[in-house]
Design a binder for these strands. Structure first.
Length: 194
DNA sequence: GTCAAGATTAGT
DNA sequence: CTAATCTTGACG
């Protein structure tokens, strides 16, 4: 069964600990959120396909990038079972590759803040709308299991409510490594996940 | 055409 | 806690 052709929440869970790179910059995924289709009022896909959300209904394994609040980009991986819609928002990385490059893009900030939060992560990796719809395989943008020699990130997989929403706030569709310093916000209403 | 809201962040 | 900043989508 193809990795991205599964329930969006399951993919979000399984993306914890994955290796994400754009060119010579990247790191380990430590925080994700699942956004579903017509059943999820907080999702861009809730009211059916629009010019912006079209890609969420398309081929799993492609990338959904959008611009928000006039300043920031958010990076998602399209993932859903056949005939549905959904994407996984990558909310934070533990930075490992191309630290100098990422620092140069981000400007002065602590190592901890380099890729902490969806907007900062996109800035550090050089991700913007030009990448919307591209395939997450074979290009500059890659996602794979943790390579040999890379230590596993600290923290146990947990789940809780998604961040920054006004609708569907209680759904536990945020996944993160509890206690990992690169996670964007302190855990709330947590349960551990296998 | 108009308008309100937004999957955020940096700064008080 | 609040301002900044501009795109998107809904409505008429």
């Amino acid at each position: 069964m193809p990795f991205y052709l599964r329930e969006t929440a399951q993919v979000a869970r399984d993306l914890l600990g994955a290796w994400l790179t754009h060119g010579q910059a990247g790191g380990v995924v430590v925080e994700t959120e699942a956004y579903l289709g017509s059943e999820d009022p907080a999702s861009h896909a809730f009211r059916g396909p629009t010019p912006r959300s079209r890609v969420m209904f398309g081929e799993p394994g492609r990338v959904y990038v959008y611009f928000i609040y006039g300043n920031h980009h958010c990076f998602n991986v399209v993932a859903h079972p056949p005939g549905r819609a959904g994407a996984v928002l990558i909310r934070a990385l533990e930075p490992r590759l191309g630290l100098d490059l990422m620092k140069a893009r981000r400007g002065p900030c602590s190592l901890r803040d380099l890729t902490r939060g969806p907007g900062r992560l996109c800035q550090a990796l050089g991700i913007d709308r030009a990448l919307n719809g591209v395939c997450l395989a074979g290009g500059d943008l890659r996602c794979s299991p943790l390579p040999w020699g890379q230590p596993a990130p600290t923290g146990r997989p947990c789940r809780g409510p998604r961040v920054g929403l006004t609708r569907a706030r209680h759904e536990p569709l945020r996944f993160f490594l509890e206690g990992n310093p690169h996670v964007s916000r302190g855990p709330r209403a947590v349960s551990e996940v296998p």
